[in-house]
């Protein structure tokens, strides 16, 4: 039986693991219970700064701490990080201060809270900021491993985590996970499915379904959207000749766009982009939302066939 866990739990665990580094501080905006920074707060209250429900202030308090030698980890819902976008832009990214921002509850998979809480544009907006590394891991193990690497990054980052549980893929494989390096989860030569976050496990399901029809798909967990692993994409293009991207994010501006930007300038192949079709969500269960948005495994499999037909 596959272990199920939420990526936000991996984030919370990583903060606790990082606490030995006395420069690590945690910033909250009244959602520590949700983003899972609460564990750090409980263990290290003097290194946890509550900013109340004030995301704009939180980002810049982080900038001031980073400029003074600290390593701040700030978190809130993905959607509310966007409220502080300009603070992230002008106060954090522009002076290249290593504030690490985590947006939990990303994507329509967030579910019944409805459209106001389902960020579908966070990866796109933060990807446009120079200096900022953008990540969206797929399980708690990789979330923990990536978060643990952030103190050495030396630049700001944005990481999207998810509210709901997804299959754990990396138990015992922590050492394979590196910022900026996509992970090949399955090898095939007909098509490559590049995905991130909650759609990685959906992509694996799609690959299984395709295999039953004699189509062999490579599946990649592209947990880092920026910098994108262009070397891996080039290899996938020459190995498979057709690509699919899959993300629980607006089809505009996210992983699909990052891959498209790379291949149009490098090694071209047909690309089908599975993502939220430029619309807002609604209240529904996580799995229902993937169906409504047309981004679950059957849709990924369909897109794979379409990509192959365009070779």
């Amino acid at each position: 039986m596959t272990r199920m866990a939420a990526t936000r739990d991996g984030y919370g665990q990583a903060l606790l693991d990082l606490a030995d580094n006395e420069k690590v501080v945690v910033l909250e905006a009244d959602l520590g219970k949700s983003t899972k920074s609460l564990h750090f707060r409980k263990a290290h209250p003097h290194r946890t700064i509550s900013c109340g429900i004030g995301e704009q202030n939180m980002l810049l308090v982080g900038a001031g701490l980073a400029a003074s030698g600290y390593i701040p980890f700030a978190s809130t819902f993905a959607i509310f990080t966007e409220r502080a976008f300009e603070q992230m832009r002008n106060g954090v990214a522009r002076p290249n201060l290593a504030v690490h921002l985590c947006g939990s509850h990303g994507g329509t998979h967030t579910g019944t809270d409805g459209s106001s809480a389902q960020s579908i544009e966070d990866l796109a907006v933060f990807r446009t900021l120079p200096n900022v590394v953008v990540m969206h891991p797929c399980d708690d193990v990789s979330t923990r491993a990536l978060t643990m690497q952030l103190p050495q990054l030396g630049k700001p980052s944005y990481m999207r985590t998810a509210r709901n549980k997804t299959p754990v893929l990396y138990d015992g494989r922590e050492n394979e996970i590196k910022i900026g390096k996509g992970i090949v989860l399955r090898e095939g030569h007909d098509v490559a499915i590049i995905s991130c976050g909650v759609l990685v496990s959906e992509s694996l399901k799609a690959a299984e379904a395709l295999a039953e029809e004699g189509i062999n798909a490579t599946v990649v967990d592209m947990h880092t959207l920026k910098p994108i692993d262009g070397e891996l994409i080039d290899r996938l293009v020459s190995q498979c000749g057709a690509l699919v991207t899959a993300e629980d994010h607006n089809v505009i501006g996210g992983l699909g766009s990052a891959v498209a930007e790379h291949i149009v300038a490098n090694s071209f192949a047909p690309l089908e982009m599975v993502g939220v079709p430029d619309r807002f969500g609604e209240s529904g269960q996580a799995d229902e939302m993937l169906e409504v948005m047309g981004i679950s495994a059957p849709y990924i499999a369909k897109a794979a066939k379409q990509a192959i037909s365009r070779k």
Binding site: V25, H46, R47, I49, Q56, N57, M58, L59, L60, V61, G62, A63, G64, L65, A66, A67, S68, G69, Y70, P72, E86, Q87, N90, G91, R94, P95
Partner: peptide
Amino acid sequence: DFSAGSLGMGLSFGMGCASAARLD
């Protein structure tokens, strides 16, 4: 000490600097 240009940001940044001084 601060990259300015967008109003309403410096006080928050100063709070971060003051928080860091206290931690130190």
